[in-house]
Design a protein around this nucleic acid. Structure first.
Length: 259
DNA sequence: TTAGGGTTAG
């Protein structure tokens, strides 16, 4: 079933699962969760909700955190984060012993941010803390990314500070979000500082992050610095300690500098 | 052996 889903044949999975039941074979949580995933992939999220809330218990399988999270993610992927929020609140109230975990909260918080429901996303973040579910790096990245896109860099710094204080260490993706946020805001001094900070911690920026920074340098007409940065990011040296293979976007910037 | 969450460039 999982293989059929991976090769984008969800209808085949539905047939397989029907056959499975007809044969009288005993299901387990992993089998039904794989079926849920395929239903969601086939854009049949409502059918998945029905299986989750009614059919699973009839089949002798109690939904677990994976079951709920597969359906929550599907709602969010199809821009129905409000329905995801309602399902999450239902699990919290009557989940039958299965309470929403950090992945459930992260999924819905990210979905709400993606649909511009900033207030609801922030409320849910506070709710998860009240419920003693510790936010992870993924939670903070969703918030940081939303704040960066809103160009609210001061608030982003506060969240980063809170993240570190709570023991969630910024990873490469956290730095990438912030560097891109500063770059697109034209605040290259701060972006440079973060680039240095992350490499100092042994985290290597990826080519897209570097391109974002490079593009901002070019847009601001700082050609000399852009040329120096291009040289340093593409040639392994004592300054950076890493070497990246330029993408087409890098060369576009480089050509612009030459022109 | 098999199930769930995150970003960015031209």
């Amino acid at each position: 079933m999982d293989c059929c889903c991976r090769v984008r044949r969800p209808k085949l999975v539905i047939t397989l699962f029907s056959l499975f039941l007809m044969k009288g074979l005993k299901t387990n949580q992993i089998i039904v969760n794989t079926f849920l995933k395929c239903l969601c992939y086939a854009k049949r999220t409502d059918k998945a909700v029905n299986v989750l809330l009614h059919r699973m218990s009839e089949l002798g399988c109690v939904p677990n955190a994976f079951s709920y999270n597969i359906v929550l993610k599907s709602f969010c992927d199809y821009s129905m984060s409000q329905r995801a929020l309602e399902l999450l609140q239902m699990i919290a109230e009557e989940g039958g012993g299965c309470f929403p975990d950090v992945v459930a909260y992260n999924t819905v918080i990210h979905g709400l941010f993606m649909e511009g429901e900033t207030g609801k996303a922030c409320n849910l973040f506070h709710e998860m803390v009240q419920q003693d579910v510790a936010p992870s790096v993924v939670t903070y990245i969703s918030i940081i990314d939303a704040l960066c896109k809103a160009r609210a860099m001061e608030k982003t710094e506060l969240v980063l500070w809170q993240m570190v204080a709570n023991g969630a260490h910024p990873d490469t993706m956290t730095y990438s979000c912030m560097i891109n946020g500063y770059s697109t805001s034209g605040r290259l001094k701060e972006a440079t500082k973060l680039l240095r900070e992350m490499t100092g911690r042994g985290l290597i920026p990826d080519i897209v992050t570097c391109n974002s920074f490079l593009a901002s340098l070019c847009k601001l007409g700082r050609s000399k610095e852009a040329a120096e940065f291009f040289e340093s990011m593409t040639a392994k040296g004592h300054k950076t300690g890493y070497r990246l293979i330029p993408h087409f976007a890098s060369w576009v910037c480089y050509r612009r500098m030459l022109c």
